[in-house]
Computed example of a mutant assay.
Amino acid sequence: MAGRRRWSTEEILDAAAELLRAGDADAFSVRKLAAALGTDSSSLYRHFRNKTELVRAVADRVLLSAMEGYRPEGDWKQRITTVALRLRDAFGQQPQLAAVWGRYASGGAGSRLVMEEVLQALRSSGLPDDQVPVRYHRMVVLLAALIASDGGVSSISAQEFEQGLEQFRVAVLGADPERFPALSHFAREIRPLGADRAAAFEEILAAHLADVEAAIP
């Protein structure tokens, strides 16, 4: 009788990415992945020690795709902005995986490429070396949060979006002015979380870069 097919690491990651696109990191399991591949979990543990290691590898492939063909151009702010937008676009193609990066991070080749470029850009800005690691950490925390938020909104269905929008309108436009005077005052100008995400992403990033620039001696 023929033995079970042996799946390569890349094939396992392809299948894992598809499952994660259809659900999320909480619903994902090695057992479900094994079932999708028609094998048993033990065969997958020869490639990855646990679920966390596996999803980190999937997220790292998104980072690799984001950095593919990248060449540093412009000043340090332009370089970081370009990397940030590449990351946003790459995870935008796979929004269900955006939260995976923010939750699990990654230690693979893609992660190292992103880390190296952001660190080099910050160092070229004129920041003292002792400030670069702290500024780097804040930058990556900000990017992970923005990308995870963007991915979370992008991954919901049109029906879920409309339901959320209706609840937002009720909560904002129906607020009691006695109890919520500021909310009532600005109600018609307040926009839901999903509105103008691209512009908000770029404005928040630019403000953070300006803060870094102000700290340069």
Rank of each mutant, 00 (worst) to 15 (best):
S125R: 08
L127K: 11
R31V: 14
V100R: 05
D129M: 12
S65A: 13
L113D: 05
Y104Q: 01
T39S: 10
E10F: 09
G152F: 00
V140E: 06
W101N: 00
G152C: 01
E116W: 07
S125H: 11
D14K: 08
I80C: 00
P128F: 07
L113N: 05
D89T: 04
A22H: 07
D26I: 09
A34G: 10
T39P: 04
E11K: 08
G38V: 11
L64D: 05
V62S: 13
D26T: 11
R21A: 15
L44E: 11
A57T: 06
S154D: 10
G108K: 03
D130G: 09
R103H: 04
A148M: 07
G92I: 02
D75H: 13
R88Q: 05
L97G: 04
V140W: 07
S155P: 01
P72E: 03
R123K: 09
A17G: 15
S29I: 13
G74H: 00
A109V: 08
P133Y: 12
R138W: 13
L142A: 15
G38D: 11
S154Y: 10
R135N: 15
D75K: 03
S157Y: 00
R21V: 13
A59C: 10
A105M: 07
I156N: 01
I12M: 11
L142S: 09
A148S: 14
E117N: 09
L87G: 01
A25Q: 12
L113H: 11
L146S: 07
I147S: 08
L122T: 09
E116G: 10
A15L: 02
G126H: 09
L119I: 08
R56I: 00
S111G: 12
E68M: 06
P133W: 10
V141F: 14
Q131T: 14
A148N: 08
A109M: 05
V153G: 10
Q93H: 03
G110S: 12
F48C: 12
G69S: 04
A15T: 07
E11S: 11
A57E: 12
Q96A: 15
S125F: 07
V140Y: 10
L119D: 07
V83W: 01
L64M: 02
L20Y: 12
D14Q: 07
V83R: 00
Y136V: 14
D130Y: 14
A57P: 06
A36W: 12
M139C: 15
P72M: 06
S41L: 04
L122R: 06
W101Q: 00
T82E: 10
D40S: 07
T82P: 01
D129P: 08
G110P: 05
V153M: 13
V100I: 14
E53D: 14
D14L: 06
A90F: 02
L13E: 13
T39A: 04
S65H: 02
G152V: 02
R135K: 15
D129K: 09
V118G: 00
A35L: 14
I80K: 03
A98I: 01
V132K: 12
K51S: 09
D24L: 09
A15R: 12
G38Y: 12
L63G: 00
L19E: 14
